[in-house]
Amino acid sequence: MQLDKILHVEDDESIRIIVEMALVDISGFTLLACDGGHEAISQVEAFAPDLILLDAMMPGMDGIQTLIEIRKKPNCLNIPAVFMTARIQESEKQEYLDVGAVAVIEKPFDAMSLGDRLESIYQASLISQDIHNQE
């Protein structure tokens, strides 16, 4: 399976624009950009993304709270989630992984390679799910 549809949740408009250029213009993905958790939660099921890319620190509802709410939707339990954050201490990274993220990407990120990186993360998550399902 190829990665196609990505839900991006980010409150900073300039980062949303860079990610859109990286993922749509450079990598050819279908992207739905949301400026916060509430918008993402209301649109995630209709969009049915292959992967969710979440900003960790957002006002109101942060990335972890957003992911927890998305996971309550029956069709969204196994969608791989990736956090993006400027704060990347091991304890924080572990916190993101503990709530079900498959990876954490550090800001600033390389826009030219973001699509390839997400594709690799997505493929690795599919292999991991297959192994988990066989146990």
Rank of each mutant, 00 (worst) to 15 (best):
residue 3 L to F: 08
residue 3 L to W: 01
residue 3 L to A: 04
residue 4 D to Q: 12
residue 4 D to N: 07
residue 4 D to V: 10
residue 5 K to T: 09
residue 5 K to V: 08
residue 5 K to I: 04
residue 5 K to Y: 00
residue 6 I to W: 02
residue 6 I to Q: 09
residue 7 L to Y: 06
residue 8 H to P: 05
residue 8 H to W: 01
residue 8 H to N: 12
residue 9 V to A: 02
residue 10 E to P: 04
residue 10 E to L: 03
residue 11 D to T: 04
residue 11 D to K: 05
residue 12 D to I: 07
residue 12 D to E: 15
residue 12 D to S: 08
residue 13 E to V: 10
residue 13 E to F: 14
residue 13 E to S: 06
residue 14 S to D: 15
residue 14 S to P: 14
residue 14 S to H: 12
residue 14 S to C: 10
residue 15 I to Y: 05
residue 15 I to L: 15
residue 15 I to G: 13
residue 15 I to D: 15
residue 16 R to G: 14
residue 16 R to D: 11
residue 16 R to M: 13
residue 17 I to Y: 12
residue 17 I to E: 15
residue 17 I to C: 15
residue 18 I to E: 11
residue 19 V to M: 10
residue 19 V to R: 05
residue 19 V to E: 09
residue 19 V to A: 08
residue 20 E to M: 06
residue 20 E to R: 12
residue 20 E to V: 09
residue 20 E to L: 08
residue 20 E to P: 01
residue 21 M to A: 14
residue 21 M to Q: 10
residue 21 M to Y: 09
residue 21 M to L: 10
residue 21 M to C: 06
residue 22 A to V: 02
residue 22 A to M: 07
residue 22 A to D: 02
residue 22 A to N: 02
residue 22 A to F: 02
residue 23 L to C: 00
residue 23 L to I: 02
residue 23 L to F: 01
residue 23 L to W: 02
residue 24 V to K: 04
residue 24 V to L: 01
residue 24 V to R: 09
residue 25 D to W: 00
residue 25 D to Y: 04
residue 25 D to V: 11
residue 26 I to A: 11
residue 26 I to Y: 09
residue 26 I to M: 06
residue 26 I to N: 06
residue 26 I to R: 14
residue 27 S to F: 05
residue 27 S to R: 14
residue 28 G to A: 06
residue 28 G to F: 09
residue 28 G to T: 10
residue 28 G to S: 11
residue 29 F to E: 07
residue 29 F to L: 15
residue 29 F to K: 14
residue 29 F to Y: 13
residue 30 T to M: 08
residue 30 T to L: 12
residue 30 T to G: 06
residue 30 T to I: 09
residue 30 T to V: 13
residue 31 L to N: 04
residue 31 L to Y: 07
residue 31 L to F: 10
residue 32 L to I: 04
residue 32 L to E: 09
residue 32 L to H: 03
residue 32 L to M: 11
residue 32 L to S: 11
residue 33 A to H: 07
residue 33 A to W: 03
residue 34 C to Y: 01
residue 34 C to F: 05
residue 34 C to D: 11
residue 34 C to G: 02
residue 34 C to W: 07
residue 34 C to T: 01
residue 34 C to V: 03
residue 35 D to M: 12
residue 35 D to R: 15
residue 35 D to Q: 10
residue 35 D to V: 10
residue 35 D to I: 10
residue 36 G to Y: 03
residue 36 G to I: 08
residue 36 G to D: 08
residue 37 G to N: 02
residue 37 G to F: 03
residue 37 G to R: 09
residue 37 G to D: 00
residue 37 G to Y: 00
residue 37 G to C: 13
residue 37 G to K: 09
residue 37 G to P: 13
residue 38 H to M: 15
residue 38 H to K: 14
residue 38 H to N: 14
residue 38 H to G: 13
residue 39 E to K: 13
residue 39 E to H: 12
residue 39 E to L: 05
residue 40 A to H: 01
residue 40 A to V: 04
residue 40 A to E: 04
residue 41 I to C: 12
residue 41 I to Y: 14
residue 41 I to W: 07
residue 41 I to A: 03
residue 42 S to I: 04
residue 42 S to K: 12
residue 42 S to R: 15
residue 42 S to A: 15
residue 42 S to C: 02
residue 42 S to M: 09
residue 42 S to E: 15
residue 42 S to Q: 07
residue 42 S to P: 00
residue 43 Q to V: 01
residue 43 Q to M: 14
residue 43 Q to I: 01
residue 43 Q to T: 13
residue 43 Q to E: 14
residue 43 Q to L: 11
residue 44 V to F: 12
residue 44 V to I: 07
residue 44 V to S: 02
residue 44 V to Q: 03
residue 44 V to C: 05
